[in-house]
Design a protein around this nucleic acid. Structure first.
Lengths: 135, 135
DNA sequence: TGCAGTTTTTAGAACTGTTCTAAACAACTT
DNA sequence: AAGTTGTTTAGAACAGTTCTAAAAACTGCA
């Protein structure tokens, strides 16, 4: 099953990151199963259930490095809290307002027409669509 | 010129807010001219140029109350900082990435097709489109 | 207008999420 | 194995925001 290999050591190395125990442990949590959305606090709580202790600072470091390396995407939906998304492909988000739940939806079917040109001297970086819903 | 009346006292009262000196001063800064985007810190710095001293806590209180009253719209574009937009109508945003500049663009011409239905048990609240650009 | 009742403001403390610091440690190179 | 470099860590520091309790201001009513 090529491309799905859970060889996190080489995946990290390929991203230009040393495969330390901590990074491998975090990568395993993040990339082993289905796509997921995590916060630093949440991932830190999760890694506590592991043999290897990982500090909160390391979780923050790793999340930022993974994002910079293109392994994660940061999603800004609520003030004062960052979500990281293991799905780095083209897609958008549902955000369930009071609870802070986040769900992906594919951008396949979604078309956005009529966007104005970027302001002078800027180039397009990304278009985020956040569909906010309430219970 | 009806509808453009700068009678902030009655506008605040209509929104269910007591027209205190501080709120009137802030409303004047926010709603007197063109539409604008402010942060709490920015508005606080601005009101310092006024006769009336207004504390940072009051700026936060007022921004939150104005938003709850529908006078402002909160825009979440960057982690750890809230922007408030005096334009509460339908529109979207350009966000210039490194500097944190925010620009409106009307949603008139923009059409979004193919959005999936909200998850079960939720109803649509708002669709935010953020076009991120870089210099 | 003066007074009572309620809301608002304020300074500062508290809190939350995130980054920094400098020392201990682990990974790579030879 | 030793040396070099990069990483982790606890805790301090920081930024943005909210809370607290007391003082001040708004409002309605006599």
């Amino acid at each position: 099953m090529p491309g799905t290999s859970p060889d996190f050591t080489t995946r990290l190395r390929a991203a230009g990151l040393r495969p330390t125990r901590q990074r491998v442990a975090l990568a395993r949590l993040l990339f082993e199963g289905e796509h997921r959305h995590v916060t630093a606090e949440g991932l830190h709580a999760e890694v506590r259930g592991t043999r290897l202790p990982v500090s909160l600072a390391t979780v923050y470091n790793a999340l930022n490095q993974f994002r910079d390396a293109g392994l994660l995407r940061e999603v800004v939906v609520a003030p004062g809290r960052s979500y990281f998304d293991t799905n780095t492909g083209h897609h958008h988000h549902f955000f369930v307002e009071p609870d802070g739940e986040l769900h992906d939806f594919p951008s396949d079917k979604v078309t956005i027409a009529g966007l104005p040109a970027p302001p002078k001297g800027t180039r397009l970086s990304r278009v985020d669509v956040i569909v906010r819903v309430r219970r």
